[in-house]
Design a protein around this nucleic acid. Structure first.
Lengths: 203, 203
DNA sequence: GTGGTGTCTGAACTCATGTTCAGTAATCTA
DNA sequence: TAGATTACTGAACATGAGTTCAGACACCAC
């Protein structure tokens, strides 16, 4: 059971504070630009302690990734649908996960693959229940669902600047046109789809 | 007139080779992780020459951003529609532009704002011609159009791995379900849209 | 108390990186 | 041709970052 990052700061053990600070810095600045000294300062500890607990900067990232994967596979609520789980990950770890998979392809493949597997489950679920329109390429549909879902987090800085509001409010405003697209489509003729199918040589 | 990166390598001046190498490294590794020595090695020159031409690593990035903006505003084809221009930027500089705006919010705001302005023009164009469905929030629709268009580049490494093919082929495959969504929508009921509108307190 | 284990720190070490600098070759101008 | 400007390089410098290390402090078993 991973500790919830919404718990009061003072209740967290030092190692948990470090992880929480790492999530924030990695999400905001990216792995390469974030420094151990920054993270340590945010957590109120020394840089040496970070190494003591996690071995290295890479070990700290592994711990962060592990927590996201654990959260996604959380056995605590086996009744949750795939869509609910994926959505919960977006809400809880969206900014971090987006940065993590976007930045370092070598070490974040497992994280991405786990997310993609969950997206596949969402597509299968939706096809069965009829809540999602089927695609000619369900596997690609799952990929599209995942990357489109991660999108807002990838540009969160510009989003908040554009909306002149916090991330939540900005995402809420962006959610409207995206929901419109998901519900009614965006283009009015089949030219785009024909072109996309044509490139693949399909009919 | 900015030089085309598709020109033969041997035809490029040294400074153009450096810029081309910088585009590649910045796109692949991000600004922070890319090093001047790597870029110089790719271009076949010394690291000192990079500084000589562009003053600093930041100056090199500014030059890259400038070329993208110039390309977008290219006066060479005033007849091109906003949609065609935006699409051309995605094709030519998608990977770089996505990294640039995702990574450093401070220095890439202008680039993002230029792209967003072009996306607004695309929405206005589509509304006038009737090729795009109107939104209750056209400004947010432009933002959605932009970020959804940039997103696939943010995960290009995973895309190519998933498709087991080059980036072009992977994007072509991903384009099908995205075109399906843009044409027919994805969800079959209005629950998602109602929820998105509800959060904003609209009807 | 005593030894041991785990937590935590400041200082130092090592290495990579952006940058500077002196100097050399090439190119341009008159 | 002569001078000046530009292109270019290798070596060195300064800084920052990840990591190591010896030791201090706290807690626990015996």
């Amino acid at each position: 059971m991973s500790s919830d990052t919404t718990l009061p700061w003072s209740d967290l053990k030092m190692s948990a504070r470090i992880v929480a600070a790492a999530f924030k810095r990695f999400a905001r600045n990216g792995f390469a630009a974030a420094t151990i000294r920054e993270i340590a300062a945010d957590a109120g500890v020394s840089a040496a302690l970070v190494i003591h607990h996690f071995g290295s900067k890479d070990g700290l990232r592994r711990e962060c990734n592990r927590r996201v994967v654990d959260f996604l596979r959380d056995k605590g609520r086996p009744d949750a649908s795939a869509a609910e789980r994926l959505d919960a990950v977006f809400v809880q770890y969206g900014s971090y996960a987006t940065r993590a998979v976007a930045e370092d392809s070598e070490e974040s493949r497992e994280l991405f693959d786990v997310l993609l597997g969950m997206a596949r489950a969402v597509v299968a679920e939706g096809a069965e229940s009829g809540s999602l329109r089927g695609s000619s390429d369900p596997d690609a549909q799952a990929m599209a669902l995942l990357v489109l879902g991660l999108t807002p987090f990838a540009f969160s800085a510009h989003l908040t600047r554009w909306a002149d509001a916090g991330l939540d409010a900005a995402m809420a405003r962006l959610a409207v046109p995206i929901a419109e697209i998901y519900t009614r489509g965006l283009v009015t003729d089949s030219g785009l789809l024909d072109a996309a199918m044509g490139v693949r040589g399909e009919r």
